[in-house]
Amino acid sequence: MKVPSVYIAEELMPYLRARVSKILYSKGFTQAQIATWLGTTQAMVSKYLSGGVKAPPREVGRLLDVLAEEIARLVEDGARKEEIILFTTRRLISLFRERDICEHYSRYARVSTELCSQFFATTPEKDVLSELGIALRELLALEGFGGLIPEVRSNFAYALPEAKTPSDVASVPGRITLVKGRPFALPPEFGASKFTAGLLLEVMKRRPAIRSVVNIRYGDDVEKALEKAGFKVVRVRTGGMEEADAVKALAAPFEKEVYDAVIDEGGEGVEPLVYIFGGTPFEVLRKVEKLIEVLRGDES
C-alpha cells in the first residue's frame, strides 16, 4: 500500500535533498554542515553530490527545483530548523494540489488522480499565513533592515491566489516598526492593511503571479542600490492624490511590464517610498536582502 508518505519518502525527498545539497555546496557549505541541516550522514550527502539519485519526471523535477532553491535560501538566511521543516511540509502538501504531482503519484500508487487531491485538508489561508510569518521573521532578523523602515513604517503582505478583497490579503497589523532600535511586528493577519492590500490587489489584476509586497524608505542611496542590484524599477508620483487613485497609479505600470520595485516620489505631505514586489514573500525577502547587501557594500 503506497500511501503519500511512502511516495514522498521514496520518490520526492531523495531528489529534493540532493538538489538542496548541491545548492548549499555551491554556496560554500561543507558536507558535514549540509548533513546536519538535512538530518542525514556525510556519506549520504556525498552520494547526493555525486548524482547517485534517481530524477523524477521532468515536470515534477521543475517543481522540486524551485522548492530546493527556497529551502537553501532559508538555510543561508539562518532560519531555524523548525521553520524550515514547517515550510517544507507546507510546500510538499501544496504540491499534491498540482496536477503533475497527482498524475505521477497516481501512476506510482495505481490509484485515481481524484483520490490524490483529497489527501490533505490544509487551506490556502493557512499556507499564506505560515509562509508570510516565516518570511516576516527572516525580514526582521536581517541586519540593516531597520534602517529601511520609513517614517510611516513598513508593511509586508501576501495575497491568496485568487484574492479579490482586502480580507483575502494577509499583512502585518499595525505595520512593522522600531522598538528600542530593532524592527518589531505582530504576527500577520488577513485584512490588516487597507492600503497595502489594495495596492497588491490592483497589481494582481494586471499580474496575477505577483502576490507579495513590502514597502521601505526612499533615498538617493536606495535608488542607486536598486539600480546596482539590477532591479527593474519604475517611478510614480502620488502626491496630492486620493488613496484609491494613488493605489491605481502605483499599479498602472504593471499593465505593460513586470517590475521588481516601484518608487513613489510622494509629494506635499506624502513621504516618498519604495515598494518591492514578488511572487512570494520569500522572493520579496531575497530582493530586500540583496538591496541591503548592495547598500552595505557602498558604505564600506
Rank of each mutant, 00 (worst) to 15 (best):
W37S: 11
D65E: 15
L24M: 02
I71L: 13
A9S: 14
Q31V: 08
A68V: 02
V75K: 02
F87P: 02
S50R: 15
V53F: 02
G61H: 09
M44C: 14
L16C: 12
I84S: 03
T30R: 08
E83S: 06
R80T: 11
L95W: 05
G51I: 04
F96P: 00
L12M: 06
K22F: 04
S94G: 07
K54V: 13
G78L: 04
A79Y: 01
V20P: 00
L16W: 08
Y25E: 10
Y48A: 06
R97Q: 05
V45F: 03
V45A: 02
Q31E: 04
V75W: 03
R17Q: 13
T30M: 14
L95K: 00
A43M: 02
L24E: 00
S21V: 06
D77S: 14
R17N: 15
R97I: 01
L74W: 06
M44F: 09
V53R: 03
L74C: 10
L74T: 05
G52T: 06
F96G: 00
Q31R: 11
T36R: 12
A68C: 11
L86N: 00
T88A: 12
G28M: 05
Y15E: 10
R80A: 06
Y15S: 08
A9T: 09
R73G: 07
Q31S: 10
G78P: 03
R58V: 12
L92C: 01
Q42C: 01
K47D: 15
R80N: 11
P14I: 09
G61F: 03
T40R: 10
E83G: 01
G52L: 09
E11D: 12
A72K: 04
T41S: 15
K22V: 09
F96K: 01
T41I: 13
L63A: 03
Q42F: 03
E83Q: 03
L38D: 02
E76N: 15
K47V: 14
Y25R: 13
K54G: 03
I93F: 07
K27N: 11
R19C: 05
G78C: 09
T88V: 10
A72M: 02
